[in-house]
Design a binder for these strands. Structure first.
Lengths: 135, 135
DNA sequence: TTGCGTGCAAAGGTTTTGCATGGCA
DNA sequence: TGCCATGCAAAACCTTTGCACGCAA
């Protein structure tokens, strides 16, 4: 049985509002507190775990030094093959959903016998802005 | 200036000996202690950081719950110009040099304005063997 | 009423840092 | 001798867990 609570709704609303980017747990804590709907850290983790298990939210480990990041992906099938581009200069994280890149998974599986988990896979490099600046 | 120390050599020797797989920090600590050349945890982390910065060793975040893993990749140029597939089950590191995958860099640059550094990019997933076993 | 969700605090684990000492060049 | 590397302990950090209370159904 699942209960709907104010806290759970606030958390999910925040994730949906920021569905186009990743949010850290610290960010969630800060935002909810600033909105006047503070939420205990443990509760946030527990809610996030449930959402991840339900498939509504995905958990990303970006560098392992700072904490995990979470992002709402909804329950549409097409949203499960995302890749990320991480700029090593400015740290920007670019979220891309491209047919060509989705083909990579299939290609690697068919030709290299390897099943890629794109949720864990990050391309490192320079974003357009940092590239132009020649940093 | 870089100094060579017994501890540093022991650590690097262990990593080279296990170059075909990744090792956890706990594993390194245990091995060095059992070999009679114990090494402080802090020193291991500091040495690993240097090795990673030098490009001799690569750092992997496999699940974000347990700790990071490290693997010696050597300094051969060849290993820096193509992609790596990392099996999160058995730890096997697969080097691939494939035209199709080389195209990825160009595609991402042309369509997403992002310059990928393939030497830093690792695809995480399951190798054919682990995939078959359904682990 | 039932039992899940919440909050607080404490615990667990990994990684980092401060500082005095040891060892390489 | 100069200076980096080391080791120990403490700290910082993220995340999980225990327990009592609150609240949705």
């Amino acid at each position: 049985m699942k209960y709907n609570t104010k806290q759970g709704e606030s958390l999910l609303a925040f994730l949906i509002k920021n569905k186009d980017r990743h949010t850290s747990v610290q960010e969630i804590i800060g935002f909810l507190a600033s909105e006047g709907t503070p939420m205990g850290t443990a509760t946030i983790y527990r809610q996030l775990d449930k959402l991840v298990e339900e498939g509504l939210v995905r958990r990303y480990i970006l560098d392992g030094k700072s904490g995990a990041c979470y992002q709402y992906i909804g329950d549409a099938d097409g949203c499960h093959e995302h890749y990320h581009l991480k700029c090593v200069c400015c740290g920007k994280l670019i979220h891309i959903d491209c047919d060509r890149l989705s083909d990579i998974n299939r290609h690697i599986f068919e030709h290299h016998g390897f099943t890629v988990d794109s949720s864990q896979t990050v391309f490192y490099g320079k974003c357009s802005q940092c590239g132009k600046e020649g940093v």
